[in-house]
């Protein structure tokens, strides 16, 4: 049976030459996605990858699945149509920070709110790559870019906040340089029913080089990130001897054995609790005072939009039992001319 066939990452590759700049974070993300798809095992012909416009949005061309590189900002709306029309498909969306959160911000919050079963990859390089280096809605305040020569005078979005604000059911984060975590969270996103947002911090070597280095550099990564696993203690650090505890209503990073803290004080991550207050606090950590959270931060169940549309159509259909349109019309006010 085809369904039982084991797929490899190779099965999800297309014959197209990959054209991102050498060293661009997108290369690693593409590989991680293909590995995750192989791991989940939905066949390439039952997979559709939809993107908007941007460097990151070129990704579908490199996939051996069905793909659609659409228009700037609209990937979410188009992916929504694909999923509702053909719920059997595994639908992925690939958007940059500009594509997904600026021009496409409206579609983004609505697809999350609807909880349509799409896996949304948000490749966040905090810059407009394709148009050669303008600031984006995730660019830090004050950043000097081509369109902000004196620094930006606006605050960025934190994508997770938008997701929780839109009552999202799944949020995960990874780093382009951390393929293992990327594969893990992408596979988890694929398995989650509903809108699954995966933010991947991506380096644009050309227009925003090292923008995430503070967190992603090998020497500091273990201290400045925490990999959350559902049901496990929130531990981090090279020696895994640091942890997160509650201090009043706020999170605090402690070292086990210091200041009287023991392993028992360290919080256990619960990604599946409906209440998003803790998820929000975790997602807001930025690697400075508290480590930046990677892994699956929130993963809860809720009815999906596509599932509900299908269910409602079936329910009404059975109840009314009209074989065709003509039967519907004949059930209204009509008259005969003989």
């Amino acid at each position: 049976m085809e369904e039982n066939k084991k797929y490899t990452a190779q099965d999800y590759k297309s014959d197209q030459y990959v054209r991102w700049c050498p060293g661009c974070g997108d290369h690693a993300i593409l590989n991680a996605l293909q590995k995750a798809m192989a791991e989940v095992g939905i066949p390439p012909y039952k997979t559709a990858v939809i993107s908007g416009i941007g460097c990151s949005s070129r990704l579908p061309y490199y996939m051996g699945t069905y793909g659609f590189h659409t228009i700037h900002g609209r990937a979410g709306a188009i992916a929504t149509g694909v999923k509702v029309a053909n719920p059997e498909l595994a639908v992925w969306q690939v958007s940059g920070d500009g594509d997904g959160l600026a021009i496409g911000g409206n579609h983004f919050i609505h697809e999350v709110r609807r909880n349509i079963d799409i896996n949304i990859l948000l490749l966040n390089n905090k810059i407009y790559g394709l148009t050669k280096g303008q600031y984006s809605p995730t660019t830090d305040r004050g950043a000097v870019t081509k369109s902000s020569p004196y620094g930006t005078v606006e605050d960025p979005f934190i994508p997770a906040e938008l997701v929780f604000g839109a009552r999202g059911t799944f949020f995960a984060r990874s780093l382009d340089v951390d393929t293992a975590t990327s594969v893990e969270v992408l596979a988890a996103a694929a398995r989650h029913k509903g809108a699954s947002v995966v933010e991947i911090l991506q380096n644009c070597v050309i227009f925003n080089n090292n923008i995430h280095s503070y967190i992603t550099d090998k020497e500091v990564r273990a201290e400045r990130t925490i990999h959350l696993h559902h049901g496990e203690k929130m531990l981090f650090g090279k020696e895994m001897n640091r942890g997160l505890v509650l201090d009043g209503h706020l999170l605090k990073a402690i070292t086990i054995g210091e200041d009287g803290y023991t392993i028992d004080d360290v919080l256990v991550h619960d990604a599946t609790t409906q209440n998003f207050v803790m998820h929000q606090m975790l997602a807001m950590m930025d690697g400075h005072e508290l480590p930046l959270a990677i892994g699956v931060i929130r993963n809860v169940e809720a009815p999906t939009y596509d599932g509900e549309v299908t269910r409602q159509v079936e329910e009404v259909r059975q109840k009314k039992n009209y074989p065709t349109l003509r039967d519907v019309i004949l059930s209204g006010d009509t008259w005969e001319v003989k």
């Binding site: 939809i50 659409t70 228009i71 709306a77 188009i78 149509g81 694909v82 029309a85 053909n86 579609h107």
Partner: peptide, 21 residues
């Protein structure tokens, strides 16, 4: 399947997605 979308752009775009599908 009649879907009320968030704006006209999404109306057209979701329809294009449905056509693709």
């Amino acid at each position: 399947k009649a879907c009320q979308m968030e704006d006209e752009i999404a109306g057209a775009c979701s329809a294009i997605g449905a056509a693709f599908a």
